[in-house]
Structure formats: C-alpha cells, structure tokens
Nucleic acid binder design. Structure first.
Length: 425
RNA sequence: GGAGAGGUGGCAGAGUGGUUGAAUGCGGCGGUCUUGAAAACCGUUGACGGUGCAAGCUGUCCGGGGGUUCGAAUCCCUCCCUCUCCGCCA
C-alpha cells in the first residue's frame, strides 16, 4: 500500500508509476474518496468533542442530584447525527481502503521503463569454467531423464491429484531433499539467515499483508470452510511473522530463510511453458526474507541476489541475472532481479529465483515498524525477499546440465554429502 | 465436536456505566546521589488519524465487528483466539 498522503501530494507521479506497471489507474477516485473522508471526519469530530464534554457534565449534574433531562434530549439528537455521519464515514473508508489495496507499488527510479519481459535487462551472466552451451551429444530433456531414470513421476502425480503435482521417487526424492538441505545450510551458515518452518496455510490478513490479495486471489488454493489459503511462497508466512509489531532498532535487520512447499493455481496459464517442471502447481522452494531499514533496502537487495546466485555457483549451473522492467515487475515490488538458469534441452533460460525490494509497500499493509533509537519515533520498515531457490526449475537445469551421453546424471559435488551417492542411473 | 474459564498499555495485573488513555507493580527513558556502577529517591513513559507554519486543539483505539445509552473497558449480540476437562483422531 502507498501512503495516502503521498498520493494526495504527488498524484501525477503515482499515475505515471501505475501506467508504467500496466496497472489500473484509480488515483482520481481515491482522491475524491480521500477528500470526502476528511470532510466527514472534520464534521463528525466537532460533534464528538461536544458529546464528550457534555456527557461529562451530565455525569456531574447527576451526581449532584440535579435534573438533566433537557440537556440529555439535546445530546440524543447530536448522537443521532454522529451515528449517521459515522456510517457514512465507514462506508467511505471501506471504499477508499478497497481502492488503496489495488494500487501497486511504484517502480524505483533505477528500474528501466518497459512493456513486458522483452524489455528486461540482462545485468550479468555466469558460467562454470570451461562451460560450453553447445553439447556434442543428443540431449534428453528433464522429463525424459526423469522417466528413464525412474526418479520423477508426473503421470502418477496427475492420477493422485491432478496435472502439475509431481512425484519424486528414489534418488529423485533424495536429490530434491539434498538440494533443499544444501540451500538451507548455505544460507544459514554462510549468509547468516535464521531458519524458520512456517505454516503452509495462512489467513486472509496475511495474504493481504504481503499483497497477494486482492490482485492474485484467483491464483491461490483456498480452503473456504476455514477461510484459509495455501501459500504460493514462504514469503507470505515469513514476512507476516512480525505483522502488527514495533521492533526495537537493534532487532533489525531480520534475516530469515525457510523451506516450504508452494502452491499455485496458475490460473489461465495453460499451454504456455506447461510441460513437466516448467509449470507446476506444487513445488519446493527455499525462500529468504529480510526486514530492514528503508535506507538500507537497496544494498540489501544486491546482497540477497548475491546470496541466491551463490547457490548456483556452488552447484556449477550457468545462470543470468535480469533486472525486470517496470511492466514485468510484480504488484508489490519496487525493484526486482530475476535469476534464470540455463536449460540446454529447452535451449532457454528458466526463472529460478526472484529477488525483490518492496520498500515500505508491504510494511504499510502489515503495520510493520521499528522504534528508532535516535528520534525515539516509530518508522515503517522495508521488506525484501528472494528465492534461494525454487527447486523445480533448478531441477530441470541440474538434470539437463549434468546428464552424460549414456543417459546418466552426475550429482553435483556440493550435494554429495547430502545425497550419499554421486551418480543417478 | 461437547462443557467450562479467560482475552486490558512492553510485561504482570486492578477496574460499582459517568472528569479512565485507563490504578498499582515491573520494565524502559531522563535526573539526583556516586570516582564509576548498583541501590535509593524524583520525574517521565502508547499507537494511529484530522487540523495547524508551529505551539496546540481534537478524534479513535481495553481481542475483531456490530448494538443499547446523553455517556461503554464495564451491558447485549456475533465472530476470532488462548487455556482446562471430555470425546474423536494422525
């Protein structure tokens, strides 16, 4: 959520940001509601002040045994007026709040203006020493490898649940588990994050807090009976850890890392990159979340991106980092780097991580603040998160890059101590 | 799922419907004392909104929402959460 005062004072700036993000511009409607809200507020507060003081007088009169019927009946009509204005105020505030929840975060000034993913900018690329993009043997894709090696079973997953719910079998399951543990350990031990295992189901307030709702509501799996939602990313429960809290300055920054399964309906995306792991409804992800002072947030964005890249360097998997343009930026993000891993069989780059700075956008929805030692006041914090990483696309790149001409898959060295075996097949 | 108890300021814990934003204690902050610290003593101590250049004035908030009343932390309705017991179950 943006600051209503900021919108009031910089409507054109906000409109430009919304336009660059390809979102719906509701600024004018918001300004009208905001103005109306303040008008009612001014009117009703005068009446409430009167009611408060006169009610006290009535108390005094009654204690002295004096008659107060006349003054009471006068106050009754004041009270009725207040009731009417309060109702109008509530209605206006509800409308305003609803509109405010639909206003996206504004892109940071360093973000290139662009229409869609084609306008994203590659900021760097990394390959292992001696890496070649053109292999000298016939490559199998991850589906074929998974099937031939008996480590991935998409068909039975579809039988049990539906398409997009993969089953990992034998060494496939062990490899998945190894990846998760490897990534967690690296972030905990080398990068200094604190591990959390959060709930996989969250309430509506949590989803609103991080900005998935209202915009992405149809992309969530819902449990209507209990008014809960399956998390699309660990970002939601972890960022919500400190919702409605005022942290001490020395508790900041908070750095969390957590592994969770993630659930996404991916409504309306059928037919596009849909085979195997390229698009799934349930996948595993290790997620990093940072809660920091706003002035530090852009340094922290670079760091969190580097932390994610570290995983791929350790695994020796080629990747590139993109700076997303305004049009490809998610609803809540001010700036975002995507990390894409190389898939030789698909002959393309696959998004395996997204590292974003939300500045105070989520914190304002979350009511997440800290008390400054310097001025003793409370200030909004800033939140960031980065996948570190999602295993599904990573698994694609891993299997395809580490395959041998005779159809086996070598296990990356960094995972040996987690898998206990060095080759699959 | 059934029965009961309870949700008040950072924490603990009072609060006959009427100067209660809320006693008291702890904690925090500032000060006195001290070479320094502790102890003791004194003072101070919420968030959010409106208005104003500011000082200030003002409104809201005692789990969430709604209601009764001139006036609600206190009464009523409803939802949520926590705890205890019973039942069911991984």
């Amino acid at each position: 959520m943006l600051d209503i005062k900021f919108i009031r004072e910089n409507p054109e700036l906000v409109k430009t940001g919304i336009k660059n993000k390809n979102e719906k511009d509701t600024v004018d409607e918001i300004l009208v509601l905001d103005k109306r809200r303040r008008e009612i507020l001014n009117e009703v507060e005068v009446l409430k002040a009167e009611r408060n003081s006169v009610s006290k007088e009535i108390g005094v009169l009654k204690r002295e045994g004096k008659d107060a019927t006349e003054i009471m009946s006068r106050m009754k009509s004041v009270s009725e007026k207040i009731k009417g204005l309060d109702a109008e105020l509530r209605e206006t505030e509800e409308k305003l709040n609803e509109k405010m929840l639909w206003v996206p975060n504004l892109p940071h000034e360093s973000v290139p203006v662009g229409k869609d993913e084609n306008d994203n900018i590659e900021v760097r690329r990394w390959e292992p020493d001696g890496f070649v993009y053109e292999k000298d043997f016939e490559l199998k894709d991850h589906l074929e490898l998974g099937k031939k090696l008996g480590i991935l079973d998409f068909d039975r997953g579809a039988k049990i649940t539906g398409s997009g719910f993969p089953v990992y079998v034998g060494k496939g399951a062990a490899l998945e588990r190894a990846l998760i543990n490897f990534m967690l350990d690296l972030h905990i031990q080398k990068h200094g994050y604190t591990e959390v295992i959060p709930p996989l189901l969250v309430n509506r307030d949590s989803m609103v807090g991080t900005g998935q709702i209202p915009k992405m509501e149809d992309d969530m799996y819902q449990i209507p009976k209990d008014e809960l939602y399956a998390i699309p990313t660990a970002e939601v429960p972890i960022t919500n850890l400190h919702r409605n809290e005022i942290l001490n300055e020395d508790e900041v920054p908070k750095k969390y890392v957590g592994y969770t399964a993630c659930f996404r309906r991916e409504a309306g995306s059928y037919g596009k990159d849909s085979k195997g792991f390229l698009r799934v409804h349930q996948f595993n992800k290790v997620e990093m979340v940072k809660i920091v002072k706003t002035e530090d947030s852009y340094d922290e964005l670079e760091k969190i991106t580097n932390d994610a890249e570290d995983i791929l360097k350790e695994l020796n998997i080629p990747y590139r980092v993109l700076m997303l343009c305004t049009g490809d930026l998610s609803f809540s993000a001010a700036k975002c780097y995507d990390i894409e891993t190389w898939s030789p069989a698909e002959n393309k780059w696959l998004e395996a991580s997204s590292c974003s700075n939300f500045e105070t956008f989520q914190a304002r929805r979350l009511n997440l603040r800290y008390r400054s030692k310097e001025d003793k006041k409370v200030h909004l914090l800033s939140t960031l998160n980065g996948s570190g990483l999602a295993t599904s696309r990573l698994m694609v790149s891993l299997l395809e890059n580490y395959q041998t001409p005779d159809g086996k898959v070598i296990v990356p060295k960094a995972l040996h101590k987690y898998t206990g075996f060095t080759v699959i097949g």
